[in-house]
């Protein structure tokens, strides 16, 4: 009965309607499941949204939750994947005092080695952006923390799946009915 808890990424293709976010998040809330991250954006299909939601649960739970998603009238299709079945990234931003760029020459090396990108620099502060896996972002944050970070923010996970998700086919099947 003690099934292993794993990280699952849900990809949910939906109509673009107000209120759907509520329905989706309520599915987790009712079951007392914590959402690790949630991102929503336009998908590859015009007018179709895509949610990417990361949660730590058992596979049995994941299957049941997929059923609940698909039951929503405005959900077109929902999938879940393990980490090894997706290519995923997060991105983050740091706001740091500009003085440090000159006072602490190490910082320049850290930026270079971490493949972070300087988005803007002015007299007071500069902004650094980095995309990657969580541990890479975390490493960078810890390095920079030694010098002082004015602001830090990290996005939710975005992911594409290795497998094909046949949403377009589904939609054209509806149109041809």
């Amino acid at each position: 009965m003690n099934e292993e808890i794993k990280t699952f990424t849900f990809s949910i293709y939906t109509e673009n309607n107000i209120g759907l976010l509520n329905r989706i998040s309520a599915i987790f809330q009712r079951r007392h499941i914590n959402i690790e991250s949630l991102t929503t954006s336009q998908s590859e299909i015009e007018g179709v949204n895509r949610f990417v939601i990361v949660v730590d649960i058992t596979e049995t739970q994941a299957k049941k939750i997929i059923g609940q998603f698909q039951k929503q009238v405005e959900v077109i299709r929902a999938y879940y994947h393990r980490d090894d079945e997706t290519i995923y990234q997060e991105s983050c931003m740091f706001k740091i005092k500009s003085d440090l760029l000159f006072d602490e020459p190490q910082i320049q090396n850290i930026i270079k080695e971490s493949n972070a990108r300087i988005v803007t620099v002015n007299k007071e502060f500069f902004v650094l952006e980095k995309s990657g896996r969580r541990f890479e972002i975390e490493e960078l944050r810890q390095e920079l923390n030694k010098f002082g970070i004015m602001q830090f923010v990290r996005s939710g996970r975005i992911a594409v799946t290795k497998e094909e998700m046949k949403v377009t086919e589904m939609l054209s099947a509806f149109n041809n009915q």
């Binding site: 309607n17 107000i18 209120g19 509520n22 329905r23 309520a26 009712r30 009238v73 405005e74």
Partner: peptide, 12 residues
């Protein structure tokens, strides 16, 4: 908002 969890679908 209130009726979302108890409706099959709702809309304003």
């Amino acid at each position: 908002g209130i009726s979302t969890p108890v409706t099959k679908w709702n809309h304003q």
